[in-house]
Design a binder for these strands. Structure first.
Lengths: 233, 233
DNA sequence: CGATGACTTGACACCAATCAACTGAGGTGG
DNA sequence: CCACCTCAGTTGATTGGTGTCAAGTCATCG
């Protein structure tokens, strides 16, 4: 191994088989890695800002990121939640249309967008991976739309808890799942089009029901998943 | 020209330079056209149903289509509006996750999904077009999320009117634009997470303001676009 | 231990859902 | 041609849910 055989530490990358890079041959992946860089962001840190020129293409390696917008009164609306292995990029567009903010301390691999686009044109397997990633994000955006379009606060919050629980742990869809909320109450509220107080009251309601249990401020256990699913629509 | 030189009538297709087929060379496009078929759907007709096997990939040539889902109480939620040139497909997935319904009389070119996927793997230009289309749908889904996440009915309806006006006519973003709503009040309501009555009342409100004018049941003129934009957030 | 910020709870007002009646447009049939 | 039907849309009265404002609690950190 030469000194620069693994500049980004791809060797022990937790998302190496999920992220778009997995569509590249070893050699191309290395070429990309040489021109990329790994960056850490603290919770709350701004990664890209709406209006920025779209020059980068990134992969979320660890942590959690939200995309959001603000209207002119400064009211924020979250339009996407991104998990590790997600691609952060605006392909085919001159500039960014939303803020990207780290929800928890996060790690990203950042590449020049132009490089990613040119690599993708010469490597169909890479482009297919990017298409898959985009398709997955589209499906998830539509799921969110379904969620946010619900008419009662109860259904919205229940649905969000189920989404967040699944994100944490797809393995055991059973009772007593405990997971850590990556979102504050305020972030849940801007995501669902509700207020902090309403989100809080819904959580209290579910806890009174025995549907969930709050453990500390950020941790939630789902005691009765079927009750939660029933509440979700 | 031989008898089968233009089986789908691509020659005078209104979206021939916009749809994904435009990513193909003449010869490949013809090969695809030979295995596709053109179908008409009446307003309200079901094109694909949630749960169906994902065997087709279609292009909306003319008309308008919505994607929607129902919860177990039968409450419908619309998760996307598709315009001419949009691709209707669930790539990389075994089955369909939402109903596709014609909003107006519509015309679609339908192809076997397997064929589209294999063509895309052998023609990078075609895959890039599909990626572009998917990226555009993702952007539009996030715009919708922004819209539906607004907290007042007034802002939601105002935003929707602006979206619909743009869809009809991007050319003149000025006053006195008149356009035909492709959606009934009920469809606007399921899209925004409101009720028919609320949508109706908001429209009446905007009309009293002098912001819009209703002309017949389905036609709307925007008299004061900036007032509408102000109301939209 | 005090300060800060996130969260919860309460009281109240208001907006949107609900239920119900009415209007108007389009279509059918006598 | 008009009467009638049907369905989408509008409007009104009322209720209930969610936003708002305000106070209070809890966790974390210096």
């Amino acid at each position: 191994m030469t000194t620069h055989s693994d500049p980004l530490g791809c060797g022990d990358c937790p998302v190496r088989d999920l992220a778009i890079c997995s569509g590249l041959e070893e050699q191309e992946r290395l070429a990309l890695a040489r021109l990329g860089l790994k960056r850490h962001y603290r919770r709350g840190e701004l990664i890209f800002a709406s209006g920025d020129e779209s020059v980068a293409c990134a992969t979320l390696v660890a942590g959690a990121v939200k995309l959001s917008r603000c209207d002119r009164d400064g009211v924020e609306r979250t339009i996407a939640l991104l998990q590790p292995s997600s691609m952060l990029a605006r392909l085919f567009a001159a500039d960014i249309d939303s803020d990207a903010v780290a929800l928890t301390d996060s790690e990203l691999c950042v590449f020049p967008r132009s490089l990613v686009e040119s690599e993708m044109r010469s490597h169909p397997g890479f482009m297919e991976r990017i298409l898959q990633a985009t398709t997955a994000q589209l499906a998830s955006a539509r799921d969110m739309l379904d969620l946010v379009g619900r008419r009662s606060a109860r259904a919205k919050v229940a649905g969000l808890l189920l989404v967040l629980a699944d994100e944490v742990d797809t393995a055991s869809p059973s009772a007593n799942r405990e997971f850590v909320l990556p979102l504050t109450r305020g972030e849940m509220a801007t995501l669902l089009g509700l207020t902090i107080e309403t989100v809080s009251r819904q959580l209290t309601g579910f806890e009174r029901d025995g549907t969930i249990e709050r453990r500390g401020l950020k941790s939630i256990a789902i005691l009765n998943p079927s009750a939660l699913r029933a509440a979700a629509d």
